[in-house]
Design a protein around this nucleic acid. Structure first.
Lengths: 338, 338
DNA sequence: GAAATTTATGATAGCGGTGTCAGAACTAGT
DNA sequence: ACTAGTTCTGACACCGCTATCATAAATTTC
């Protein structure tokens, strides 16, 4: 099949290249008559405009980059889902860049990626959304950016965030309301801003309820299953163990469930375990986890929508959007034994 | 920062555009002297070639598409990981296309995606790897394709496959070797070629061991957690229930574990449950699942390597590569009670 | 040391579109 | 009917790089 170019169509329709281009880009000032004629030629010839040529001439690539941590989990797949939904609707394509955020040469590597792709815009997920150097690079390059789940409220860069601190607070309120006051908390990876946020909700709720905050009840995890196991072993061998453990993500919660079961501790009868994120695993394990559902997909949809507006140079309604988390009560939580 | 073009570099280095281009593309016939001079200009000016212009002039986009089912799971993230590793090493970018394989208008939608992106090549995962219409479209468009995990051995299209039937056979051999002969099997989604393959390994192993194949021991699932639960309920309420259930993926196996626990059946003491895929959840649940590890990432790496060779018009060593699965014994399997 | 190769370099024409701007074809106003 | 203001349309330069091919320089050949 021979390639059809804009010149072929112009000849076939008996108009100039530029008019074809006008129809292609839905520009005004084309009589409906010629428009019809041109569109007819499109279908008759099976014309497909060359994206690269348009990109060169218009300096737009219709590519959006998504940067996320490479220790990929369900968070990422939900982000991708949301971003893609918008991209597709708007004629953009999504190019993915998983990166190790602890990699020393991250910036320079990412820069060379940038050089070879000419993205129209970039979506940043945690912890990249808070990396100053990265933001500076992108600013210097004048590449539009939207940040998802960022912590630092940056003056000028648009972002979509969720209310992690509040959700964490709500979870603790729930645990307290069903009679728990020996509540332990497992922190996440220190590089993630969410870690701090989630902890703050915990301390706030306990303080408010007049429950003392005990050092030994706050353990440092790193969002991995294994770190959950480790923390659980420590917590469950305390002289006075907690009656509820709130892990700041579901993988760590799953680790806790495993260790508890191995020790013959019944969940939720003897111990309540809750997580954060509503990862798929939170449904697959037994008992299924009480957790916080993060509207990740929705956040990505909104972020992408904003990004495309910026790319199109349309004004943004607001610089920052918050999307609310939601408590999901399942089987792993029950009233404290009296 | 002003944009530096090839003309600026040419002027700065005192050579012609074409010579710059030669250095850029590592073409031969450039004296090492001028090469050095040009490279010096590159760094001094901070020159970044425009990808779109190169794409237009050379009709190569350096974009590779990845098509996969949108009910995304760990399979996908592993595929992405592998594909990206190669892409990055070779200067390509990965554009992702999750699609619903049951969508009627899949082909036409995907075609419009193709039109707006000009991919250099495409990687197809199951079940797309076996969709005749899609393969025809891509062939007509002369877009290089590599198939991952395809079943049908197509004459001319390169593919990377794993030995699912053998692995399934091996799993059953293992179960038989530890004393099980009441072994049930849960089939996956019928649209996936793997479903048939995995079943064939089961029947082969049982036949070989002289174990009769019972209809009621073969249940139809669809790869989802819920379908695992359903099948488990049916299997566990048989007059003569199985002593081992082999689910053809881990999500279904997790569903079985849940139902069994709810019924107070101890795993692996009273019932052995095994899965397939080595999904993250297989480690997170308790007891952790004995399963088959699919070398998905490796398959994707190999597929991408092959694809890039095709794009570069280099000969392929062989049309089809097989990468071996591996049995992983964990906690959910134990010898049959005598 | 002249002729025949081989290697290095540049002039110029695209690649397939879009942007600019001028001119033609309509409308409307008086 | 004539001018002013819109609405269409096209010629042509240009986006930034690569391909082709001719030519100049260096090397080999005998």
């Amino acid at each position: 099949m021979k390639k059809i170019t804009i010149n072929d169509v112009a000849r076939h329709a008996g108009v100039s290249k530029k008019t074809i281009s006008r129809v292609l880009n839905q520009e005004p000032n084309v009589s409906s008559e010629t428009r019809k004629k041109v569109e007819k030629s499109f279908t008759e010839l099976g014309y497909r405009p060359n994206p690269q040529a348009r990109a060169l001439a218009s300096s737009q690539s219709y590519l959006i980059g998504l940067l996320y941590p490479s220790q990929s989990n369900s968070y990422v797949s939900n982000i991708q889902k949301g971003a893609l939904e918008r991209c597709r609707a708007e004629g953009f394509h999504l190019v993915i860049y998983p990166e190790d955020h602890e990699n020393e040469s991250l910036i320079s590597q990412f820069e060379s990626n940038l050089n070879s792709s000419n993205l129209d815009g970039i979506i940043l997920t945690p912890p990249f959304a808070d990396m100053r150097k990265l933001l500076d690079l992108l600013k210097e390059r004048e590449i539009p950016v939207v940040r998802v789940g960022a912590i630092s409220a940056l003056d000028s860069i648009p972002s979509v965030i969720s209310n992690d601190a509040e959700a964490s607070y709500e979870m603790c309120r729930y645990l307290i309301s069903i009679g728990h006051h020996k509540i332990a908390f497992i922190k996440g990876h220190l590089d993630h801003g969410a870690t701090e946020q989630r902890l703050s909700g915990y301390t706030k709720a306990l303080k408010e309820a007049g429950i003392p905050i005990l050092d030994q009840f706050i353990q440092q995890g790193n969002f991995s299953f294994e770190s959950g196991e480790d923390c659980a072993r420590r917590l469950l061998s305390l002289k006075v163990p907690p009656s509820a453990i709130f892990a700041s993500n579901d993988y760590m919660a799953a680790g806790i469930v495993k260790v508890a079961k191995q020790k013959g501790i019944s969940i939720p009868h003897d111990l309540t375990v809750t997580g954060f994120d509503n990862a798929p695993a939170s449904r697959y394990i037994w008992p299924s986890l009480t957790t916080i559902k993060q509207p990740i997909t929705e956040m990505a949809i909104e972020a992408t929508r904003m990004l495309i507006r910026i790319i199109r140079k349309k004004p943004l309604e607001k610089l920052s959007t918050t999307i609310r988390n939601e408590l999901i009560v399942r089987e792993s939580s029950a009233p404290a034994k009296t």
